[in-house]
Every structure is written in structure tokens, then in C-alpha cells.
């Protein structure tokens, strides 16, 4: 429904909207742990990072939480993850296999957090990628072309890197209306930070990761993206429901990843 949003923006624009930064007095509350765990089908792709929530008014530097015991289990094997940086736990040998289910166990401050995720099978990659001009703007956007396998539902997320810098917009897709088709999806983003390095320009090197998600993790990202800016449009925002039990924020995803890159021409 992107077109409706664009039209809404035009309409609001015509109705002489104005914006200003304000100070809102927000409560400061108890902190919560945020666990973000992934297993990919690539070696060394298993990584768990643990952080904490912060007050709204503090800065955006999040320090990791050390001292957790982190394990990923598959069938009867357990793969321990060791802390390779503050709050970042990795295992260099574990590579997931599509179709298999992985379990996460984190023990932190004596509390056990567990989660389970199944890596989609097959892992779908991109047929091609290209850059073209956007609608109602002079900016350029990347389009991914992929062939969705017919049958069971597929859920995708794309991560875009421009000159190695990750775009913060969450790009999601699923095959509810495109099952079995060759799909072109333009990765639209709104550069509201006005940082020119986010935009795609001639000579940039762009890399796209296409991540195959399971249904639960897809819905986690969907909700996260919906609430990204607070109560936009009026719907009450809420924390996305993750798949980790034990009372923390975050998610655990066993996901297949495929990558493509290009150098942007004129």
C-alpha cells in the first residue's frame, strides 16, 4: 500500500503541514534485555548479540551485555557461542542447513531464555538486481528480481549496503500474492536523515543480502517496521512479539542468506 502512503503525503503536503522538533517528557522505566540471535546457512553466520533498553533521552550507543552463557542446539548437538566482543557471542564453525530447526538457549543473571527457529528450505536467491529512478523523486533505487518457488509460503527480508554502509530501512516481502512468480521488488526507502551517503549514486557499490525467514521472524520484522516511528497514522504502537521466551525483547532466526552486488553506473 505504498502508493496510498505517497498520496497521503501529497495530500497532507497540500494541506500545508508543518513539522517541528519538540520535547516530550517520557517516563524512564526498568530496562529490558534485547537478544538478537541468528544462524545462517553460511559458516560463521551464527551470532547472538545481547544489549539493553535505554531511556529515550540517552544517546544511541548501545553497549553489549557480557557474561551470558549462549548455546545453539541442533538435534542432539550443542554449539556453544563464545563472547567475541562486548555482548557479541559467536561460533565460527556452525553453519545451518536449510529445513532444519535450531534452538537457542541463553542464561543471563540466572534467567533462562529459549527460542526455536526453522531455516526455510529452499533458500531463494536473486536472479538479478538493477538500479533505476524512483517515482516522484530524482533519487535512485535498487530493484531485486527473484523467482518465488510455488507452494509453501516464503518470507523474505533484504538488507541493502551502499559502499558497505547498511541502510536502516527494513525491506520485507512475502509470496502471498506472488506465489510461484518472478517478482520485481523495488527497495524504496525514505532518506529522512538527509545524509547523502544513504542515497544510491553513480559509482557506488551496492550489496544486497536476501534473507529467507520463517513465518514468526517475518512477523517480528513486520511489526518492528510498523512501529518504527511511533504512532504514525494513529495506530497504537507496540513492541513486536518475538519468539524468545523468558521475558526479553528480540528474536532468534535460522535464516538462509544469498547475496548480490553491483557497481552503480550512470
Amino acid at each position: 500500500m505504498r502508493q496510498i502512503r505517497i498520496l497521503t503525503l501529497i495530500t497532507i503536503g497540500l494541506l500545508c503541514a508543518c513539522q517541528r522538533v519538540i520535547t516530550v517528557h517520557l517516563n524512564t522505566g526498568a530496562t529490558k534485555y534485547v537478544i538478537e540471535g541468528v544462524v545462517t546457512d553460511q559458516p560463521g553466520g551464527a551470532s547472538v548479540s545481547i544489549t539493553q533498553t535505554k531511556d529515550f533521552s540517552s544517546n544511541n550507543t548501545f553497549t553489549g551485555v557480557s557474561g551470558a552463557t549462549v548455546t545453539i542446539e541442533h538435534n542432539d548437538s550443542a554449539y556453544p557461542l563464545t563472547e567475541s566482543g562486548p555482548g557479541v557471542y559467536t561460533n565460527s564453525t556452525l553453519a545451518g542447513i536449510p529445513g532444519n530447526t535450531y534452538n537457542l538457549k541463553v542464561v543471563l543473571d540466572g534467567v533462562l531464555y529459549t527460542a526455536s527457529s526453522t531455516m526455510p528450505n529452499p533458500v531463494v536467491g536473486m536472479d538479478s538486481i538493477y538500479v533505476s529512478n524512483g517515482v516522484l523523486t530524482t533519487k535512485r533505487y535498487l530493484t531485486v528480481v527473484y523467482t518465488d518457488p510455488a507452494g509453501p509460503p516464503n518470507y523474505y527480508r533484504w538488507v541493502q549496503y551502499v559502499n558497505g554502509r547498511q541502510e536502516q530501512t527494513v525491506f520485507l516481502g512475502n509470496d502471498e500474492f506472488t506465489d510461484g512468480l518472478t517478482v520485481k521488488d523495488q527497495l524504496d526507502f525514505n532518506n529522512d536523515t538527509k545524509d547523502p551517503h544513504r542515497d544510491i549514486n553513480t559509482g557506488d557499490s551496492v550489496r544486497i543480502d536476501m534473507i529467507n525467514l520463517d513465518s514468526t521472524v517475518y512477523h517480528y520484522w513486520f511489526a518492528l517496521q510498523q512501529n518504527a516511528n511511533g504512532s504514525t497514522g494513529g495506530a497504537s504502537p507496540a513492541n513486536p512479539t518475538g519468539n524468545i521466551s523468558g521475558g526479553c525483547l528480540g528474536y532468534f532466526s535460522a535464516q538462509g542468506v544469498r547475496t548480490r552486488s553491483l557497481l552503480v553506473g550512470k
Partner: peptide, 18 residues
């Protein structure tokens, strides 16, 4: 309305905590 009480990071980006 619902405003955030805090914020956190996922995949390197900032999200709000309600």
C-alpha cells in the same frame, strides 16, 4: 496515545520500546 518509554537496538538500528 502511546509514546515510547525507551529505545533499543536491533540489527544496528534504533527502535522504540513501549
Amino acid at each position: 496515545v502511546t509514546f515510547p518509554n525507551g529505545k533499543y537496538t536491533v540489527n544496528g538500528d534504533v527502535y522504540f520500546y513501549y
